[in-house]
Design a binder for these strands. Structure first.
Length: 260
DNA sequence: ATGCCGACAGGATGTCGA
């Protein structure tokens, strides 16, 4: 089973780009983030025409997550538990059948958290703690699971072109990095780290200041596998070339192959 | 230099992203 995650930065404006990538990459399951549309506005037709079922948790203008799956999904559950009154559409979970078993899939869009020292940063850390709690609960199920999406956290200095330039950014704060490490420490595997020894692999390049041309990127989109999924990890990659196309998202797809 | 770019809502320009 090939699974992938992609922050599309508006699904409506990215339909052609998404269809082109799906045709070439042929993933069985895709977690999408930053739909920037309501459930009603989500363009299901072009994806259904490619054979995908769509589970959408949208919101007007901001956020929004979805899971596309060739096989029908079960137990589709939007919203991250906890966070009383939190109405941001940043999480959706579903069960997807594979050839040999099922995989629990989560599409994650963690808060940006800038600027630091504000309620936004507090919200980010609280949200990541809620995610850790959910990740711990999923581990107890002892089943293959992939928690994938835009974590908005740069894990280490090796995951950014110039660590100094990000020292005051919410994505690279010690508290943010620690929150991600706490999830990994539960027993989750970062697929790109597991499959690639070389540093400076990126998933996001800002639209501004020629970041793409200068390869000024950061790695913030991650696939985290439960032990039962990591046992079946075959390969993982980043479809970097997608960033060089017409009207690109500022993020690119991250994928992995599971023998499930 | 805290903007550079891009999407959205709305109908000008402010908000948000990372």
């Amino acid at each position: 089973m090939k699974i992938a995650t992609w922050n599309v930065n508006s699904i409506r404006i990215r339909v052609d780009a998404a269809v082109a990538w799906l045709k070439e990459a042929q993933p069985d399951v895709v977690a999408l983030q930053e739909l920037k549309c309501t459930d009603d506005q989500f363009p299901k037709e072009p994806f259904e025409a490619l054979g995908y079922n769509c589970a959408v948790h949208g919101q007007k203008t901001y956020n929004g997550v979805a899971i596309l799956s060739k096989r029908p999904m079960e137990d589709v559950t939007p919203r991250l538990p906890g966070g009383d009154g939190d109405d941001h559409a940043r999480y959706i979970e579903a069960i997807v059948p594979g050839e040999k078993g099922v995989v629990r899939i989560a599409s994650i869009y963690a808060p940006n958290g800038n600027p630091i020292g504000t309620d936004k940063f507090t919200y980010k850390l609280g949200w990541l703690e809620r995610l850790r709690a959910r990740a711990a609960a999923i581990l107890k199920l002892e089943e293959p699971a992939a928690l994938m999406g835009d974590y908005n956290v740069i894990p280490t200095p090796d995951d950014v072109y110039d660590p100094k330039a990000w020292l005051k950014d919410a994505l690279f704060q010690p508290e943010s990095r620690s929150a991600l490490r706490r999830i990994e420490a539960l027993g989750y595997t970062d697929t790109i780290r597991a499959c690639h020894a070389e540093p400076h692999l990126y998933t996001f390049w800002d639209y501004q200041a020629g970041a793409w041309q200068k390869d000024h990127g950061i790695r913030i989109d991650h696939i985290m596998l439960s032990p039962q999924a990591a046992d079946h990890l075959k390969s993982s990659g980043i479809d970097k070339h997608v960033r060089g196309r017409e009207k690109p998202s500022d993020h690119v797809p991250v994928w992995c192959e599971l023998e499930i």
